[in-house]
Nucleic acid binder design. Sequence first.
DNA 1: ATTTCGTAAGACAGCATGTCTTTCATAAGA
DNA 2: TCTTATGAAAGACATGCTGTCTTACGAAAT
Lengths: 217, 217
Amino acid sequence: MPPTRKYEQRLRAQAAVDTKRRILDAVYQQLVDAPSEPVSLDKVAKLAEVARSTIYTVFGSRAGLFDALGMDLLHRGGFTGMVHAVLQPDARQGLRDGIRGNVHMYAAHRDVLRALFSMAQLDADAVGGAVQRLEQGRAEGMNGLARRLHEQHTLRDGATADQAADVLWLLTGFDSFDLLFTGRRLSTDTVTATLADTAEHALCRPAPDTRQDRTTR
Amino acid sequence: MPPTRKYEQRLRAQAAVDTKRRILDAVYQQLVDAPSEPVSLDKVAKLAEVARSTIYTVFGSRAGLFDALGMDLLHRGGFTGMVHAVLQPDARQGLRDGIRGNVHMYAAHRDVLRALFSMAQLDADAVGGAVQRLEQGRAEGMNGLARRLHEQHTLRDGATADQAADVLWLLTGFDSFDLLFTGRRLSTDTVTATLADTAEHALCRPAPDTRQDRTTR
DNA sequence: ATTTCGTAAGACAGCATGTCTTTCATAAGA
DNA sequence: TCTTATGAAAGACATGCTGTCTTACGAAAT
């Protein structure tokens, strides 16, 4: 039967939010503690001090849980600041600041993002649409940046906006970051410098004033 | 008790090799048919027309199977030709030919390699050491190429051999290929051109004669 | 003719997922 | 204060996959 009287939540709604948080934090922690072994909801439930069935009532499914984790990172992980960095008036500076912001964000959540991206590759609907949405936003951002680099006559001779979009898409991807960060054990600053230098040399005409070679290792 | 008399295989050894082949082909096929859903040994066994237990007696474990698949690709996938491409006298030409060979190999086995690499990231010992060995070979190859680019004075001013090795490592990775090939739906030729152009502009002094901008899309 | 070994067939335990039902405690409404 | 809606716990259950083990057969080698 339908509810016979209205019933607005106040305190208990907050409790529900807390439960959600505890569960999300538990998955996050589980991935940080054991980055390269499979996550079972049983462990997550115990870590969050929650019944395993509660995960299902709150997130609907395993995929829903990881989808929520992705959205959580998207909102709390500094994505919005990065978007603003890319959108600043000077496209060339936007390129560098965007890459820097990107790398910092990737580095801060490396293990969790690695798991999310790999899961998405391996099992299409294992993480809901979180990764897809995230990547689509990045694609649009890089297309826009490429167009603005072109409009501001920053691209080198022979480079088109389309080509620039491809290269930017490549160099701002999580995998590119991780290939250098984890694969070559470079610091975040060195990764930033490497990616930014590569992008500028590949796409832009020689800089008028800025020195663009990384110095630290 | 130990074998009481010597017993050399001839015909049956060949049959064993055939069985092994059928199983490896079945996993390969399974990954090509359903690239983004988990593989169960049950399906593989049915596809290979083999008892599931046979997979264990032949490969020891699930990880052993995928490890063998990786080794199989390494030997039959054209890796050796690629190594020779990189090692030719002219380092700069080795760079371009190496990238071209790399991309062709990645494209020919895209789905299977995607699965192997993602599995390796997600679960450390899910594919044995196949991916690690493969990647270590690539790392050494790129270190050597970077050194030779440096010795032949091909690197642009301000670029060191170490930096070149980092960038080459990045641009010859499977993930970089796939970011462009699958993520941007570029053809293998366009991916080759994009990666090679990016590498040259990022690392080399301006080419004396060769035109180095991709034309096709 | 006898022995060895690759393979089939299947039982079994362990673990994870997903669904469902029952129960409890607590805050909101009356 | 009394009732009701609801978040959450607890746990049973079916399903599917992995990994190990045992038994049995048939064909090739001796």
